[in-house]
């Protein structure tokens, strides 16, 4: 490799970390929302209240 290997490796490592962060964030956030929705539906949160 060249004397610039550290610059090249840093560029690839930082890109990999940011891309992995985007993917992990997408998966985790989706799971959190799906679980929250399932809990609300299980509690019958979508049903309208019956008054009178």
């Amino acid at each position: 490799m060249t004397s610039h290997a550290a610059f090249i490796a840093s560029a690839y490592v930082i890109t990999a970390v940011v891309v992995a962060g985007l993917i992990v964030r997408a998966v985790v956030d989706h799971r959190i929302q799906r679980r929250a929705l399932a809990e609300l539906e299980a509690r019958g949160a979508g049903r309208r209240s019956r008054r009178g």
């Binding site: 929302q33 929250a36 929705l37 609300l40 539906e41 509690r43 949160a45 979508g46 049903r47 309208r48």
Partner: peptide, 9 residues
């Protein structure tokens, strides 16, 4: 959807 259902609940 979670927000709407939370408000409805």
């Amino acid at each position: 959807r979670v927000r709407t259902l939370t408000i409805l609940e």
